[in-house]
Design a protein around this nucleic acid. Structure first.
Lengths: 213, 213
DNA sequence: TGTTAAGGTGAATTTAGATTCCGTTTTGAT
DNA sequence: ATCAAAACGGAATCTAAATTCACCTTAACA
């Protein structure tokens, strides 16, 4: 039997490995992008069908790549954690600790503005003892420390205070009307005043705008 | 025909109205209490079966009284809005605006500690133009104004700032480990420092505790 | 260009819950 | 004590999504 099989149809050798298909790789990204978009506008309860439709793919395709909806959310959470970490790194690289910290908090606000509808459902998806989480936590710690040493933040302010602020920003963003960033910006400014080593000066340096909703 | 029917079985008169059954009234309360307890420990996705079991009733009973799960959540939301309003009223009654405000924020924190698992899902269930909402909003406005006039809060602080703080407290509470109130208390203290008319004094008056997680 | 397996599809199947429904139990009133 | 209305109970039903899978396409490789 074997000898009759033409050369060209000979099965590939046992350990042979074929390069992953171009489209498969592409879809990996397409799915996540579509999922983020859909979750952003419908919240985490958006259906897989909807996501598939948005991606221009069949539901089955999503399931080939991700165990299920849960895994999909996990993947997005990790991606976001990564972006967050990069922002922290960038902030840390700023020679001026005060500017770095402010820049970072600014990122947190703008960033969450996009994911506001489902940001909450992403919490806890990346375990706090995960590599990225640890890394980011450490960056925040350094960022805080530098800001304290530079005399920008009060002596007793710790990384936990900044973490709490990040959580708070997220909530304030989520509660504000869609494109309006004034509320959370003011919130950050006021809170930061409370964290400053020289709150009085903070108030003078950064007077509040008059009219707000 | 009619004359043969015994006196005792004569149907009650047309417009007759019977006193509502004792148990029905009682269950009304039992259901909500059970629902709050279950939602508190499992979050808003807890099943109706679970709630019914906790209440010691059949699911059908819940449906007799509430249109559905949604209506149940709405009822709880309204109840909570009411409690919140009472707290605001009490705070407003305090002769010392500063103490009143602090007392109110304290209530917000402690209160949300219980509902932390599903507090988020309650948002928007009571429309902001609803009677209670309006009333509470007005109380917060007065509370803020008094605190400003008393020289406790900075001139430009408005009711919106306090509302944002309330939202933030909710989030910080939700993110903290279960029975630990230190994180949100410190958060409130720090934010309040930023809102104070005399932040420097706030810092001196209210020194931060050393060791925290 | 042919062969093959990776990858894609989406209808069909499961599943978890919400909601309904009707026989049974209580309660208020005579 | 008796009756009918009002409530209850909880199995049966419905529903919306998630997930699977048998079959079809397409890209990689010779």
């Amino acid at each position: 039997m074997d000898t009759l099989v033409p050369m060209s149809s000979r099965p590939s050798p046992p350990g042979a490995t074929r390069a992953p298909r171009r489209d498969a790789l592409r879809n990996d990204v397409i799915v996540i992008k579509a999922a983020r978009a859909v979750f952003a506008e419908q919240g985490p309860q958006a259906s897989m069908e909807t996501i598939a439709a948005r991606a221009g793919l069949g539901v089955g395709t999503i399931y080939r790549r991700f165990t299920g909806k849960d895994a999909l959310l996990d993947a997005i959470a990790r991606l976001i954690a990564e972006e967050m970490d990069e922002a922290a790194a960038a902030a840390l690289a700023d020679p001026d600790p005060a500017a770095g910290l402010e820049r970072f908090l600014d990122f947190v606000g703008s960033f969450n503005a996009e994911e506001r509808r489902y940001a909450a459902s992403l919490a806890d998806r990346v375990p706090s003892d995960d590599e990225v989480s640890t890394r980011t936590a450490d960056r925040i710690r350094q960022l805080t420390q530098k800001a304290v040493e530079a005399g920008y933040l009060a002596r007793d302010v710790t990384a936990d205070d900044i973490k709490a602020l990040i959580i708070a920003i997220r909530a304030v963003v989520a509660a504000s009307p869609d494109g309006d960033d004034a509320p959370w910006r003011r919130f950050v400014r006021l809170h930061l005043t409370g964290l400053r080593a020289d709150p009085e000066r903070a108030r003078r340096t950064w007077p509040s705008p008059p009219g707000r909703a």
